[in-house]
Amino acid sequence: MRTAICPRAHDPITYGHLDINEQAAAMFDRVVVEEAAKACKKVYLQLEKRVELARSACGNLSNVTVKPYRGLVVDFAMQEGATVIVRGLRAISDFECEMQAALMNKKLAGDIETIFLITATE
């Protein structure tokens, strides 16, 4: 069974997030959306509310679950048995930051790959 994680800090969840989750759900047997407890950016919604909204939004995807997590993305991936981290790109400007994070994750956990998916234009 191929498991992927989609690390996020939905504040709030957007159509772009949903699109990436749907794409990942079509590609993998199991997808775990990680709602970051401590986001790198300022968040307005409390963790519990972000998890609740993400669960509601992903309710139609039978192979997707949403879980809160405190810690490194690669640690969460290993805990969930994931072999892939899924990241969404909206624009080319997203790529540089995401690439740096992917390279660091590769150093920390060489057996976990990162893939980039492009969001729909809508």
Rank of each mutant, 00 (worst) to 15 (best):
G81L: 08
T114F: 02
L47Y: 02
L45V: 06
G59D: 11
N60C: 08
D75G: 09
R2E: 14
E80T: 06
E22Q: 13
Y15V: 12
A25D: 02
S93C: 03
A77P: 07
V33I: 15
K41M: 10
A24I: 00
P7N: 09
I92L: 15
R70S: 14
A120L: 04
K41Q: 13
R50Q: 10
R55W: 06
I112P: 07
A26N: 10
K41H: 14
K49E: 15
P68I: 07
N105A: 13
L61W: 06
A24G: 02
I118L: 15
T14E: 05
K42T: 11
Q23K: 15
F95E: 05
H17A: 04
V86A: 03
F95S: 06
C97F: 14
C58K: 01
L61K: 09
C58P: 01
T3M: 01
N105F: 04
T3A: 11
S56C: 11
N105Y: 05
P12G: 05
R30D: 07
K41V: 11
A101V: 10
V73E: 01
C58H: 05
F76I: 04
V51Q: 04
G71D: 07
L103T: 07
I5Q: 02
A9S: 13
I13H: 05
C97S: 10
A24W: 00
D94G: 11
S56K: 13
L117E: 01
S56L: 14
A77C: 08
A36Q: 10
H10L: 10
G81Q: 13
A4S: 02
M27V: 02
L45G: 06
V86E: 00
E122H: 14
T14Y: 07
C58N: 14
E35H: 09
R90D: 08
L103N: 12
L53M: 15
A24F: 00
T65W: 03
A9V: 05
I5D: 00
L89W: 09
D11F: 04
Y69N: 12
I115G: 00
K106I: 05
S56G: 08
C58A: 07
T121I: 11
F76Q: 08
V43T: 14
A36Y: 05
I20A: 02
M1F: 07
A82G: 08
T3F: 01
A4C: 03
D94I: 10
I20D: 02
I20L: 09
H10V: 11
V73N: 09
K41L: 10
C40K: 11
R2Y: 02
I118H: 11
M27L: 15
F28K: 00
H17K: 06
R90A: 07
S93G: 08
L103W: 08
T65S: 15
V84P: 00
E52K: 13
A37Q: 11
Y44T: 14
A4H: 00
H10D: 12
L47S: 12
E113H: 05
V73G: 02
T119M: 12
